[in-house]
Simulated scan of single mutants.
Amino acid sequence: MTTSRYGQPAPMPDSIRHFMRAGQHPARATACPHCGAAPHKPCRIPSRGVVMAQVHQQRIAARARTIACCPTCTVEPTIPCHTNGRALENGSVHAARYTEADRSAA
């Protein structure tokens, strides 16, 4: 039997808990498609499992794709960005969508 020193954390809505996590990149609220890190967990180097201080670019793009509309190609959240009808490579998003994601989160 294991015991926890502090017991269960206080009940708190996820929306408030997210903003209480000072110093973390907002993209950590989503899972990382590159290394498979769970939401609110740090990214790791997949080959060695070493924890990284930063988040993967793919995770930042996934966050932008999930929460923001793209002003460049006029797609809604969760729809991949495209150029001339073709999705951008590796799940990338337009630079304007990053800006829109940061604006909508503030």
Rank of each mutant, 00 (worst) to 15 (best):
G91C: 05
A96K: 10
A61Q: 13
V93R: 02
D102E: 13
A61W: 03
P80S: 14
G23H: 01
P80H: 05
A27H: 01
G7C: 04
Q57R: 15
D102W: 12
A37Q: 08
S104M: 08
A62T: 06
Y6P: 09
P33S: 02
A106W: 10
N84F: 11
P13G: 09
N90P: 06
A37K: 12
A95Q: 14
N90K: 15
G7V: 06
S104V: 15
I67K: 03
A95D: 15
M20S: 13
C81Q: 07
I79Y: 10
V50R: 14
Q57K: 11
H56W: 08
R59S: 00
G49D: 05
R63C: 01
R65D: 06
V51T: 14
R86H: 14
R59L: 02
C69E: 10
V50A: 13
H18C: 05
P9L: 08
R59E: 00
G91M: 07
I60L: 03
A10T: 14
M52S: 13
K41C: 07
F19E: 14
M12D: 05
N84L: 09
G7Q: 05
S92G: 13
R97M: 07
P42C: 01
H34E: 10
P42M: 00
C70N: 07
L88I: 01
I67M: 01
R97P: 05
R21V: 06
G7W: 00
A31F: 06
D102L: 10
L88S: 01
T74P: 06
C35Y: 06
A101I: 03
P33K: 05
N84H: 12
A62V: 02
V51P: 06
A38W: 04
M20G: 11
G36V: 03
I45S: 05
M20R: 15
R65Q: 08
L88H: 02
T3L: 12
A29C: 10
M12W: 01
P11F: 08
C73P: 03
Q54M: 12
E76C: 09
S15R: 14
R17Y: 09
V55Y: 04
P46E: 00
A31V: 02
C35V: 09
A87Q: 15
G23R: 00
G36D: 02
R48W: 10
T72K: 02
A87E: 13
C32P: 01
E100I: 07
H25E: 11
F19M: 14
S47M: 09
T30K: 10
H18V: 01
A37E: 06
P46Y: 01
C43Q: 05
A95K: 14
C35H: 07
